[in-house]
Simulated assay, not measured.
Amino acid sequence: MAAWVKGGATDADAAVEAAATLLASARNAVLAGLCAELSAVRAAYHLADALGASVDPVAGPSLYAELGPLSRTGAMTTTPAEAIGRADAVLIVGNVPWDRPIVGDIAGSQATRGRAAGSERVILSLGGPRNGATRHVAYPVEAGGLAVSIAHLRAFLKGNLAGEAAYADLAKRLSSAQYGVVLYDPAEIGELGVEMLTGLIKDLNEATRFFGLSLADPFQGRALLQLAAWTTGQAPRVGFGRHVPEHDPWRFDSARQIAAGEADAALWLASLPAPRPDWLGTLPSVAIVGVGSPDASGDVADVVFAVGVPGESAGGSLWDERRAAIAYAPASGQTAELSAAGILTAIQERLTLKKAAAC
């Protein structure tokens, strides 16, 4: 079954009518998650505008960990292809990056372009695992966490701290690189860590070439960020209460709004896997989730749709981390009956009809 209303299986048209009625009766709705193909995210923004609702992606914490430092100080960045092709030294910060394919790509190759071509690649780890299949030099994280560790490393690099400490050795290794790359996950190191790391990279560029390569979150945040920019001219957390996009990362945080009682209805969009929020089902809600998802059942929200999963049971434009770009992912199996973009568009059309009838 592809749709449920109040726990009972139904057809898509009846579920669309129920969803439109639920959202139309709300004074302040939130559209959250947005972990989906770009066509669905675009349709969600259009629906939010029609409702006067706010938008908050599940990728928000990762995106905003970088957006703040980027807006204040800028950044010196590179791409996966450049890192693999040019880097003779790669510093991997934290634990999260080690589970990503790019670490294997880096470890299994050497620089083939630029000044470092043909030289042996050194892989360094700050606060990451000490053992494993990838050979690397590991440096422990300090008690204050990754952000404090990065700050101390920067102090050693600038000569503000000295001695035989491990970070002094790491600073020397980084300074001797011909083309260095720092690989990190923004959500893991946080906004302060990103700001410290950005400063560290700028300091290194006073003597050599060094760049940052942040990992994309697993919830399509990078693709969403680009769509938000070309659709609204703003970062993702926006509200359409006055039918113009108003950006405010604190005000339009969906969890904060719901906890404060400011929102009285919600739509959760996750055609790709994403952690279901604790608040879903605590207020009138609509859920659009992928076919086969554990959340594709009638007890998740008042109205539930099971739609095609992009790259599996539906085609869609998604973030490709290896290319660092948006790319189309065709369906790899049988196409699902419903699509997230189609459901969102149908809800918006039903809302338009309800407004016309009310006039």
Rank of each mutant, 00 (worst) to 15 (best):
E195A: 15
G68K: 10
I326F: 12
A270M: 09
L269A: 13
S254E: 12
A346M: 04
G239V: 05
S317A: 13
V148G: 01
A48P: 03
L70D: 12
R86Q: 14
A296Q: 02
A20E: 00
S297H: 12
A2C: 01
L269M: 13
S125G: 09
A15M: 09
V141H: 05
A18G: 06
G163E: 05
L353V: 12
D299M: 03
A306E: 02
A255G: 07
V304Y: 14
L157N: 06
N131P: 00
A32E: 08
D295C: 00
T134P: 02
T134N: 14
P218E: 10
G315N: 11
R173V: 07
E188I: 08
T352S: 15
L38T: 08
G199L: 11
A147G: 09
E66S: 14
G281F: 11
Y139V: 07
K158P: 00
A111I: 03
P277L: 09
A81W: 10
Q110F: 10
E37Q: 14
V5P: 11
I258Y: 11
G145D: 08
P249S: 07
S293N: 10
D278R: 14
A3P: 02
L225T: 05
I326L: 13
G212V: 01
A26E: 04
A53C: 04
T232H: 06
A306D: 01
A48I: 02
A340Q: 03
E262Q: 14
T232G: 02
A340T: 08
A111T: 01
S271K: 12
K6L: 12
A341F: 06
L63T: 05
P69C: 02
G94A: 05
L91A: 09
L224H: 14
A75M: 09
P101K: 09
R154I: 00
V137D: 14
P129K: 11
V307A: 12
E349W: 01
T79D: 09
A324S: 12
A9F: 07
R100F: 07
M1Q: 05
M196F: 13
R242Y: 01
Q334K: 15
S313C: 09
A19K: 10
V286R: 10
V58T: 15
L23I: 01
G315K: 08
G94C: 01
A155Q: 13
G33E: 04
S317V: 10
H247E: 15
I347H: 04
A296K: 00
E337A: 13
A117G: 04
R251F: 06
A274K: 11
V309W: 06
S254D: 15
R86F: 11
L215M: 13
A18P: 04
H247A: 15
T73W: 15
A40E: 06
H247F: 15
G311Q: 08
S109I: 00
Q226L: 13
P330L: 01
A117V: 05
G190H: 05
A336H: 08
S285R: 05
A301Q: 07
A165S: 15
S39R: 10
S285N: 08
S54Q: 03
L200Y: 05
A111C: 03
Q334L: 12
F240I: 02
F252T: 03
F210D: 03
A228P: 01
V303L: 02
R130E: 15
L227M: 12
V182N: 03
V182L: 13
P330E: 09
Q334M: 11
A24E: 11
R237D: 02
I288T: 01
A15E: 08
D320I: 06
G241L: 07
R27H: 10
A358Q: 14
L126P: 12
L200E: 06
